[in-house]
Computed example of a mutant assay.
Amino acid sequence: MPNSPDQSLLGRPAPHPEAYAPELLYPIARAPKRQELGVGAQPPFFGADLWTAYELSWLTPRGKPVVAIAHVTVPCETPNIIESKSFKLYLNSFSGSRFGSADEVLARLRTDIAEAAWRGSDAAGSVGVRLTAADAFDQQQVHELDGLLLDRLDIECTDYTPQPALLSAAFDEQPVEETLTSNLLKSNCPVTEQPDWGSVQIRYFGPQIDQGGLLRYLVSYRKHDEFHEQCVERIFMDIRQRCRPTRLSVYARYTRRGGLDINPFRTSHPAALPANVRTARQ
């Protein structure tokens, strides 16, 4: 049986780990939610979940602390997501352990995260991990998502659970290519019901999507309980089914919680992953 969110450490007291503990990583199967969305064995999208870990530290062999930022790329083809509190506790477990070099830490991260993300798969896979050392912190950028901001629209919002029927497109007109953004995405953790705040970017080519309806649809997630990755896949599938674009990409950047931000990207066609650059709220 796959792990379920209610069996995780979410919402439960958890002691700070004293030593490196890869067993803390808690994978949750993607399949049940994808089945709910009508996503088959071959999803109609590519992409990855881009994680940024700001609270990573370990000890040198002489006991001196080192700090770094970790950038983790988990392909959406993995059978599992990794529950974020378990990820935080796992990263915290490095803080009391001694490692010979940053390369050793990097290797442990790649091995452990890949094992959890691909657990249950017929074939082993990999994840991407890179570290930013403290002497490069001032090179980190802040940039808002590119595109036309939907939040400029003066609309009335009355729905706060996802309403795909709010989505529509001009099927009898010439197709357009647009990039639309909003900072008004908000959902809730399905276990703790704590708020998750995000910004979203939608790129598409196809029948022009009604912008007011799209903004109302995004706002309708406000009381919805679902993990970040699942929300983005729901948005992708709803737009795909209701608006029928020829090409579609959905990218969300969520504000950090517990020193972690999660930024899922889904696209209908093979495309380069977006640069993992934080927004001002992150």
Rank of each mutant, 00 (worst) to 15 (best):
P5E: 04
L10V: 08
L10N: 12
G11S: 12
R12F: 06
H16N: 04
A21E: 12
E23L: 05
L24R: 12
I28C: 05
A29R: 15
K33E: 07
R34M: 12
L37T: 06
G38E: 08
V39T: 06
G40P: 09
A41W: 03
P44S: 02
F45W: 15
G47C: 10
T52P: 01
A53G: 14
A70M: 02
P79Q: 07
I82M: 02
E83V: 10
S84D: 01
K85R: 15
L91F: 05
N92V: 00
S93F: 07
S97L: 05
G100V: 07
A107L: 07
A107K: 12
A107S: 14
R108M: 09
A116K: 06
W118R: 08
R119S: 15
S121G: 06
A123P: 02
A123Q: 15
A124W: 00
G125I: 09
G125W: 05
A133D: 00
A134T: 11
D135W: 04
L145P: 07
L148T: 14
E156L: 12
E156P: 00
T158A: 15
A169N: 07
F171H: 14
N183D: 12
L184M: 10
S187P: 09
P190C: 06
V191K: 07
V191I: 15
T192L: 04
T192A: 02
E193A: 14
E193T: 13
E193G: 00
S199Y: 01
I202P: 03
Q208D: 12
I209K: 05
D210M: 05
D210H: 15
G212A: 11
G212S: 11
G213A: 09
L214T: 08
L214P: 07
R216T: 01
L218A: 00
F227P: 03
C231H: 04
R234I: 02
I239L: 12
I239E: 08
R240F: 04
R242A: 14
R247L: 11
Y251W: 11
A252P: 03
R253N: 02
G259S: 06
L260S: 02
L260A: 01
N263Q: 01
N263G: 01
S268F: 05
A271D: 14
P274T: 07
P274A: 06
T279N: 12
T279R: 15
Q282H: 06
